[in-house]
């Protein structure tokens, strides 16, 4: 579904690689969590695979289409929800979703069916004909999600999707992720929330300083329980380890 092979990304005027030799392979029907501290390279990786950032070397394919060589077909198979839930706020929710549906050439029948289903699932029925600029943070996030799903993408990419959302909204999004995967699609999302990743993901990858440190299969017994420990082990700095030892000594 998604193949990332030896991805290197360095920003202009930067001396070090933000993503270095990163390789990943995602299978149909799985929810994949992408973990890392702030600045680890999660968003950069996501922006490379969605086509927002160009990258220095490596290869990214979505459903067999190379994002660099055949971006249109690669993007047609992907839906993206950004971390800052930016949308065209002068449009109404319906206009925005229709705009996206037009770009992805969604037929009228599919559009109507999915639109009604998602709007009702995310409880946006009352707000959908109002300009997005009056929406709350959570509502904007939801309309982004509906727009990303309107073409029923095989790969659904979300960057920090749960940030600032209430419990109810998070539950709605998790349910949608589950349903999307049950239909044979793949969900790839970045998060800081280890509990959430442990709870819903099939696999999780941990990235540190732009390098992939580990890919953990959460179906293997014990991995869900030890995910946090492994994350801390991998991402902790030397100072963190000293602090931890001091705390242990003091009981």
């Amino acid at each position: 579904m998604l193949e990332i092979s030896h991805l290197y990304k360095k920003y202009l005027n930067s001396e070090r690689f933000s993503v270095e030799d990163l390789s990943l392979s995602l299978q149909p029907g799985e929810i994949f969590g992408f973990l890392g501290q702030n600045g680890a390279g999660k968003s950069t990786t996501i922006k490379c695979l969605t086509g927002i950032y160009p990258f220095n070397s490596g290869k990214i394919t979505i459903c067999g289409y190379d994002i660099a060589k055949d971006p249109i077909n690669a993007k047609l198979n992907m839906g993206y929800v950004p971390d800052n839930h930016s949308v065209y706020e002068k449009l109404t929710g319906r206009e925005y979703v229709n705009y996206t549906a037009d770009l992805y050439k969604v037929s009228k029948r599919d559009r109507n069916e999915r639109f009604d289903k998602y709007v009702s699932q995310f409880k946006l029925t009352k707000a959908v004909d109002t300009q997005i600029k009056s929406y709350s943070h959570g509502m904007k996030q939801k309309i982004c999600i509906i727009a990303a799903l309107i073409h029923n993408p095989k790969l659904w990419v979300l960057d920090e999707p749960m940030m600032g959302l209430d419990h109810q909204s998070m539950a709605e999004i998790l349910k949608r992720m589950d349903d999307h995967c049950a239909e044979g699609n793949t969900v790839f999302f970045s998060s800081h929330n280890l509990d959430l990743v442990a709870k819903i993901c099939d696999r999780a990858a941990i990235i540190k300083d732009g390098k992939l440190q580990d890919v953990i299969d959460l179906h293997i017994k014990g991995n869900k329980e030890t995910l946090e420990k492994r994350f801390v082990e991998i991402t902790a700095t030397e100072q963190d380890k000293i602090n931890e030892r001091t705390l242990l000594r003091r009981g």
Binding site: K90, E95, N98, Y99, D102, D129, K133, S134
Partner: peptide, 28 residues
């Protein structure tokens, strides 16, 4: 009162890609 949003009730409309891009640009 957040902003001054307005309500514009429409149906879902299908437009060709190029036309939808122009329509969005015009509305903006």
């Amino acid at each position: 009162v957040e902003g001054s949003a307005f309500k514009h009730v429409t149906r879902n409309r299908c437009r060709p890609v190029f036309l939808t891009l122009m329509h969005k640009e015009f509305l903006q």
